[in-house]
């Protein structure tokens, strides 16, 4: 039976686009501050967008202002995640989705490369070992 057969029609009024809350602008300043820190000390920073009172309009506005960069990373790990560089180099828009495709968390990461993209030395070592094994079998 498909869901359409059930005569229930839920209108998701995800805050009926109440427009901009004004909370997005200070975020841009915070991102700029994080970038300054990255340049000076190499220290990375993350902003948890799900934890802030942002409306969908705010997020759109923020995404629009930050623009699209050259790199778009897709990670398949228990649902798709996207780690996209914005037009502002060093600012990454990270979206985690679950296996159903629903957004679970959204971050803005300020780093040379997002943490998740980097390969872990242990994993690299495992890769190298299996490659050695492969070569020795040839």
């Amino acid at each position: 039976m498909s869901l359409d057969a059930i005569p229930v029609h839920v209108i998701n009024t995800t805050p009926a686009e109440p427009g901009l809350s004004g909370n997005a602008l200070p975020l841009l300043r915070e991102i700029s501050e994080l970038l300054r820190r990255l340049l000076e000390t190499g220290e990375t920073g993350t902003i948890d967008l799900s934890a802030l009172p942002l409306t969908p309009a705010d997020l759109d506005w923020l995404q629009d202002k930050l623009g699209e960069g050259e790199i778009a990373v897709t990670l398949q790990a228990n649902g798709e995640s996207t780690l996209n560089e914005t037009a502002c180099s060093g600012v990454w828009w990270v979206v985690h989705r679950n296996t159903q495709g629903a957004v679970t968390t959204q971050f803005i990461e300020v780093a040379w490369v997002p943490e998740l993209v980097k390969a872990h030395p242990q994993d690299v070592k495992i890769g190298q070992e299996s490659l050695e094994l492969l070569i020795s079998d040839l």
Partner: peptide, 25 residues
Amino acid sequence: ITRRTFLKYCATLASMMALPPSAGL
């Protein structure tokens, strides 16, 4: 279960518990 899956899980968990983003790592 790969390391990245685990990292992603921890990031989500930390966000859910209203911990600072660095807590995920």
